[in-house]
Design a protein around this nucleic acid. Structure first.
Lengths: 250, 250
DNA sequence: CGACCGCTTGATCATAATCAAATTTTGTGG
DNA sequence: CCACAAAATTTGATTATGATCAAGCGGTCG
């Protein structure tokens, strides 16, 4: 892990000059868990958080059925959460980017209800749930923010439910691109030019489509000059056209 | 509301001899919010809860965009939660039966993210969220249980996502019937013989199918002698066959 | 009684799945 | 660095599932 070979990984190289990351100096703290906290409180939150070594692409953070201990904040990289159906197919339930929290589905039964796997080299902050609960009783702001985070997960799932239930393949793919674009914007990255960390299969398993259909939609969007697609590299050429294709007011 | 006209409503007539309902004597308290609480704590919870007059069929509990104030526990009857898409179609995000909690999607933005409407005459308990939050900081059990309820909502939404994404019309309808059946069992009602409170359109808008398809699936299930369908009255004749059709291990 | 609503059934059509194959990209070892 | 194998992606042809369009039935309410 001390190697400094630069991989083909497109993401920023983590700051080397401030290795001792904490919530107070993390550049994600304005969109992550500390969002609503005072400086004093952030220090306490910081105390319970464990920061991971980088995880290699394809590693599991947890698996469906594992005992639930912690929720996780993505520090760098990207992950997918997914469930495996009885007949062995994979339903991707979400993609997670830096600053986003995953694992909250494990709270209800104290067992992870889905698996989480890195899509590229990633690092996460582990937040032991028992400590978070305890701290939440002392810090109403934190409790409220965590309620909000769970509620946000619910509203986002409801958006996906609607997308799967009512929208065409074109609309689903366009909506996913817009979602990734706006999440990039939130992290001050380009909303029009980015690299998809997930495969076409993952996209299909998220949107309820086959790989072939996903690929065809990308081709169609390219032909219409809305998009430039170079393998995983995406450039949105006509954002308005993509919004129109997504058929949502956002 | 002091009238004692009995409607055509199939549900049990609420106990008249104990009008002053509270959480301590509510027959749903073993599956509802008080689940994990001690007697003393139940009394405190009871203090913040407001019980509604019966709501007529078709009345709204809240609408998408309303300011979020409270979550609600169903006391009797049944409700649907739904979102209206930009092009005016309706996505039903859930059906709610006695003992179940709805409205948690409003926490994240302090605005209801969906609408809730009664499917038949119903009564609910209103739980002001600010009071619930405050009480939760004092009662770790309550905080934990509410975290669990939200997490359960998330896992249930993920099941629906998978259903919509991967399963056929037959499988979706069969899965819904099994879900209603097991929720009836939880309330000590018959798991094989019940009345559906929602219309075929509602079922379609929940499962991402048209009315016609829903109706055809019911017909098919009747022809296969798995089910007896008399309008909204359902009798499951061969539960194993329904499980097989649903194609889930549950 | 008649209009309307919810539900069912039938015929046809469209979208995306499936099957099949070519092509590009990636990873690995020499 | 190149060669080769494996994996991922794209494209094409055909098919199947459920949507759409259309009509009829039965019950309810004014």
């Amino acid at each position: 892990m001390t190697s400094n070979i630069t991989t083909a990984d497109e993401d920023f190289i983590p700051c080397q000059h401030e290795y001792r990351v904490n919530c107070g100096n993390c550049r994600l703290n304005s969109i992550c868990l500390p969002l609503t906290l005072e400086d004093d409180d952030i220090v306490q939150l910081d105390d319970i958080i464990q920061r991971s070594k980088p995880l290699q692409k394809g590693q599991h953070l947890y698996r469906e059925g594992d005992e639930f201990q912690s929720v996780y904040a993505v520090r760098s990289g990207a992950l997918k959460a997914y469930k495996t159906t009885d007949d062995g197919r994979e339903q991707v339930t979400g993609f997670y980017f830096p600053g986003e929290i995953l694992g909250m589905d494990g709270i209800s039964k104290n067992v992870h209800d889905s698996s989480a796997k890195t899509l590229e080299t990633s690092a996460v902050c582990e937040i032991p749930f028992s400590s978070l609960s305890k701290l939440s009783t002392l810090m109403p702001n934190l409790q409220h923010h965590f309620f909000q985070l769970m509620s946000q997960r619910i509203t986002e799932d409801q958006v996906l439910i609607t997308l799967l239930s009512k929208n065409s393949a074109d609309e689903r793919v366009a909506a996913l691109l817009l979602s990734i674009s706006s999440r990039n914007a939130r992290r001050k990255l380009s909303p029009t030019h980015f690299r998809l960390p997930m495969s076409r299969v993952d996209i299909g398993n998220y949107l309820g489509l086959t790989v072939e259909t996903v690929s065809r939609v990308f081709s169609r969007m390219q032909k219409l000059e809305m998009l430039r697609v170079d393998n995983k590299e995406i450039e949105i050429l006509d954002a308005q056209a993509v919004r129109t294709m997504a058929n949502v007011s956002s």
